[in-house]
Design a protein around this nucleic acid. Structure first.
Ligand code: FES
Ligand code: FES
Lengths: 151, 151
DNA sequence: AATATTTCAACATAATTTTATAGGTTTTAT
DNA sequence: ATAAAACCTATAAAATTATGTTGAAATATT
């Protein structure tokens, strides 16, 4: 498996959850609620949200009545932004972004392969926004609902 | 980072190294030589080569004069075969190949995204063979040589 | 034919990173 | 004051990455 880490997966679901609650005068969503919705440990989510905040993808409000919210519109947050924030990069191998990572980069026969594959992924994640995911997800849920009703 | 594991990276380099020594009446390449060429620990390579052998991508000959060799022509071994052998899959997340992995797969909003991204990768790795990498790599080395000569 | 050497094979152990849990502190609304 | 929530630090569990040790099989050498 070319593994997308749990940080990346959980973090994207966290962001999607916040996106679902996004309105123009949005109210904060508490992590506890996200944790329950997504069946992910709160403690772990707390760690995951830190880099999202540092990278200005979410804002937080402390104290009672506080919580987290998207820092900007879902249509302005790309999957790539999320992965970049959580994993420091969107690439398959370090050397694609950090040329000093492998020292034999000049002669490595596989470099071009991982690089090309990374471009493919990046292009995709670059053009998918939370808004897109939201729409895809809504369609899916509506279809599932229709199906279960039809029974 | 959407991490391609060291197993995947080292394993592909191992296979590429064997491909370089591939001839019709091929002779076995010892791991020690691969380890030196690629600057990877022999002990680790020994572990990596096991699944490659189990999946019939390499053959081995024991004893003095022995070593490893490709089980078939470089043009008939795809990157996808290698990753599949080493990591059990070519996908970004388990649930794309094993629907029981995430239990909320029916409602998960991100599933479609990871699935589509996986298709992109798979299509690419499915059509790149060791022969292709060999040619890309040779061109690169030739260009590098030319450049250093020109100095 | 006996022995030594070479190599894969198997098993065990250590180090590191990722994943996950736990406990406490600070901030804020009520 | 109290409770709710983010925030911070530490630790535990698991997986990945890497090294070490011994054994078994085939070959080469004597
Ligand atoms: S240069 Fe980084 S994998 Fe080859
Ligand atoms: S990540 Fe597997 S179903 Fe959502």
């Amino acid at each position: 498996m070319i593994k997308l880490s749990t940080k990346g997966r959980y973090g994207t679901r966290l962001m999607l959850n916040l996106a679902r609650h996004y309105k123009n005068d949005q109210q904060a969503v508490i992590l506890k609620s996200v944790a329950e919705d997504e069946a992910i440990s709160i403690r772990y989510l707390e760690q995951i949200v830190i880099p999202l905040k540092i990278n200005h993808l979410v804002k937080s409000i402390r104290g009672a009545g506080g919580g987290y919210m998207l820092a900007r519109k879902p249509s302005e947050i790309r999957v790539c932004d999320i992965l970049q924030a959580l994993e420091g990069s969107c690439s398959l191998v370090e050397c694609v972004e950090d040329e000093t990572f492998c020292d034999k980069i000049k002669t490595c026969g596989t470099y071009e392969i991982w690089k090309a594959a990374t471009e493919l992924l990046k292009n995709y994640f670059d053009r998918i926004t939370l808004q897109d995911i939201l729409e895809i997800s809504d369609k899916k849920l509506a279809a599932a609902k229709k199906k279960s009703k039809a029974k």
